[in-house]
Design a protein around this nucleic acid. Structure first.
Length: 692
DNA sequence: GATCCTCGAGTTCG
DNA sequence: CTCGAGGATC
């Protein structure tokens, strides 16, 4: 790209980011990233002074105010807070302010949740709500009074009469206060998680586009022109600060402000706490970091404030941030990043799966570079384009996925993605079955499929050959030692040594000899696995752990299974026409017959199925679903416990589910169970039910 | 024929 | 955990 077009792009980008930051109050890039763009722009302008026009972002101090709403100048600046990432940062902050003023040493601290919503400023004159504004750039916001009027949590009139007594009841001596004739408070408007889920569910059922997250939804609903639409969104708010007051007396301690606001009839958080020292404040903050799922809204951290607001004000500012408080940030669980490209992987069944290549970003403590996109329809449906800013979330705190593109951040340079027409591994044309979403590489000799196939064969739920990971599988195939899964059982020590030591010997931690010996032992061990495991391992399309166990129980050996007809197979519960046909098709293929012959010859020909010993039937006819991490039992352990007592374990919550067994950090299953009225129990109760 | 349920398959990072 | 799709059920 030449300098001139780079310059034009930069100008456009900086304008966009200004708009997102100042007007929408929803930046999509970090301050650091923004500064980088602005500096690059300035550098180009320094070189080419003749290019600079009055519309360059460098020629204007702030962003253009929105044309849609009236501007409101705030009576006092609406401040942002400095961030602390972890306890060390928070202690460093405290140490700095303590050195500035030794009163800090004995100061009390108030900890409040930092809700991820939209900051709003509410004006009351003689107790009547007269104006509401967005935060904007902190100096000037937008008048969204008519939208805010529709938010039921906002008192339109402060009930002065009823309130006096309430104040007097709660704190007879502390509040000797008069309601200010002009009172300006600050709060956070947001949509509670559960309401957001319900809203999205309703929209999805109506076939409408769903929202990305509660924050964007709330911000969008408050910043649009039709108050009726705002009213239809479940927005609420919590108030936590007095920005300005005139003609009255208000408390000077944060803790009392919260009580005072509550007494005035404002909604106030009930998770705020006051502490005598920093360590207790940090400890409290950290309990909410772990328990953030218990909060009914999205919180991006907790705020630690010096209770004495006079002292806090005396401490002054660092840049724009007041020294008297700090935002203790939780690790982000949802972030925006750039979609750099889309890779395509080939699975063992030949299915092509698109994988998002992302600009590296930290989510929940780990750096994420990739995310699954499930299938090509998913990309089209969500209208995800290469170059988009995308919202990424780690589902259940583990697997990242893309919620959707941030369409507001589009520059017009994004590319619509076209799915491949040929397999990225072998170059053969891909096929698509009518009515199915998946695209397949149907080349039986596709090298990518062979690797995945062998990986599946040796994986934990299948033949469970420990020590045979992706790397070793790839090397064995590359060296020509493994051409199909049966070759595993005729590998010699020399074969393994040759394959393993072929390249990058230096990176091996263990001596190759030891790897080979361990592997041979693991292979010998695996050759005695029960029939159901072997059937799972074969990787027949549509046959997994459960069906394999049914088939093994029904036929008893592979000879009988390989001769079974479609009709015979369909007699088995859970096997319908499609899977039956898939099984017959699999055994009819010459390559597979060859594999079977080799397995039999190698003595890998089990005739027994695994029988779980049923201790008793205390859990008979009960179906369980497990979510989260249990205190003592592992996932396998729970399954074992339930099944050995006659119960059943499934993966998804439905009306047929008897109990949801709940652990730490549960996923979305909890919400589903609650909405279906499925009883939720813990590990202890499960054990009691089982009679253990 | 529609709906609900269960299963399979693919998924990230350290 | 997610989605798609096969199978069971009404």
């Amino acid at each position: 790209m030449d300098t001139k077009s780079r310059y034009e792009t930069l100008k456009q980008q900086v304008h966009e980011h200004n708009y997102r930051y100042h007007v929408l109050d929803a930046p999509v890039v970090s301050d650091l990233e923004y500064d980088r763009l602005l500096n690059e722009l300035k550098a180009i302008e320094a070189e080419h002074t003749d290019w600079v026009t009055p519309d360059s972002p460098t020629q204007r101090a702030g962003a253009r105010p929105s044309e849609r709403f009236e501007k409101v100048r705030h009576p006092r600046p609406i401040l942002s807070l400095a961030n602390a990432f972890g306890a060390e940062d928070a202690r460093a902050w405290f140490e700095r302010v303590r050195k500035l003023d030794d009163r800090v040493e004995r100061a009390k601290l108030v900890v409040e949740p930092k809700i991820d919503g939209l900051s709003v400023v509410l004006h009351y004159r003689d107790g009547v709500f007269v104006q509401g504004a967005t935060r904007g750039d902190g100096e000037v916001g937008e008048d969204i009074t008519s939208n805010l009027r529709t938010v039921r949590a906002i008192p339109l009139r402060i009930p002065v009469a009823g309130l006096r007594s309430k104040v007097d009841d709660d704190r007879p001596s502390t509040f000797d206060l008069r309601l200010p004739s002009h009172l300006v408070v600050r709060g956070e408007a947001f949509i509670p998680n559960q309401d957001f889920e319900e809203l999205n569910q309703k929209l999805a059922e109506a076939g409408e586009k769903t929202y990305l997250n509660p924050r964007n939804t709330a911000a969008g609903a408050l910043r649009q022109l039709d108050p009726a639409l705002t009213a239809s969104r479940p927005i609420t708010l919590l108030v936590y600060q007095i920005v300005y007051s005139e003609g009255g007396v208000v408390p000077t301690r944060q803790w009392e402000i919260l009580e005072y606001l509550k007494a005035l009839g404002f909604p106030v958080t009930d998770v705020a706490m006051r502490f005598d020292d920093l360590d207790s404040a940090i400890a409290y903050t950290e309990t909410w970091n772990e328990g953030r799922d218990r909060l009914p809204y999205e919180a991006d951290g907790m705020v630690i404030k010096i209770d004495d607001l006079t002292l806090a004000a005396d401490l002054g500012f660092v840049g724009k941030d007041p020294r008297g408080a700090i935002a203790f940030k939780f690790p982000a669980r949802e972030v925006t990043t750039s979609l750099l490209g889309i890779d395509v992987e080939v699975g063992r069944t030949g299915v092509l799966t698109p994988k998002a290549v992302l600009e590296a970003v930290e989510i929940g403590g780990v750096v994420v570079r990739n995310a699954t996109l499930h299938n090509f329809d998913y990309i089209a449906e969500k209208d995800i384009r290469i170059g988009d800013r995308v919202l990424v979330k780690r589902a259940g705190e583990v697997i990242p996925y893309i919620i959707g593109p941030v369409t507001d951040a589009r520059m017009g340079t994004e590319q619509v993605y076209t799915p491949p027409t040929h397999c990225p591994a072998c170059g053969q044309p891909v096929e698509h079955l009518e009515g199915e979403v998946a695209w397949y590489c149907v080349n039986a000799a596709c090298p990518a499929q062979l690797v995945r196939n062998v990986e599946h064969f040796v994986s934990r739920g299948a033949m469970d050959i420990v020590g045979m990971g992706t790397k070793i599988v790839e090397k064995l195939i590359e060296a020509g030692k493994v051409e199909d899964v049966a070759d595993i059982f005729t590998l010699s020590r020399e074969d393994i040594l040759e394959a393993v030591t072929k390249k990058d010997r230096k990176t091996e931690k263990e001596p190759p000899g030891k790897i080979a010996d361990n592997l041979l032992a693991a292979i010998a061990e695996s050759s005695k696995r029960p029939l159901n495991r072997l059937i799972t391992a074969l990787g027949i399309h549509g046959v997994g752990e459960v069906s394999a166990a049914d088939l093994a129980g029904h036929f008893g050996n592979l000879d009988a299974l390989s001769q079974a007809s479609v009709d015979e197979l369909q007699q088995i519960e859970g096997i319908g026409p499609n899977i039956a046909a898939g099984i017959v098709d699999w055994f009819g293929r010459e390559a597979n017959q060859k594999v079977l012959k080799k397995l039999k010859k190698a003595g890998v020909w089990p005739t027994f199925n695994v029988q779980r010993s049923t201790l008793n039937d205390s859990l008979a006819r009960l179906t369980f679903v497990v979510t989260g991490t249990l205190p003592t039992l592992t996932r396998e352990g729970v399954k074992e416990l339930i099944e050995s007592n006659g119960g059943k374990v499934t993966d998804s919550v439905s009306r047929k589910t008897s109990y949801l067994v709940l652990g730490e950090n549960p996923g979305s299953k909890l919400e589903k169970a609650q909405s279906l009225g499925v009883p939720v129990i813990g590990e202890e109760e499960l054990k009691k039910l089982a009679g253990v």
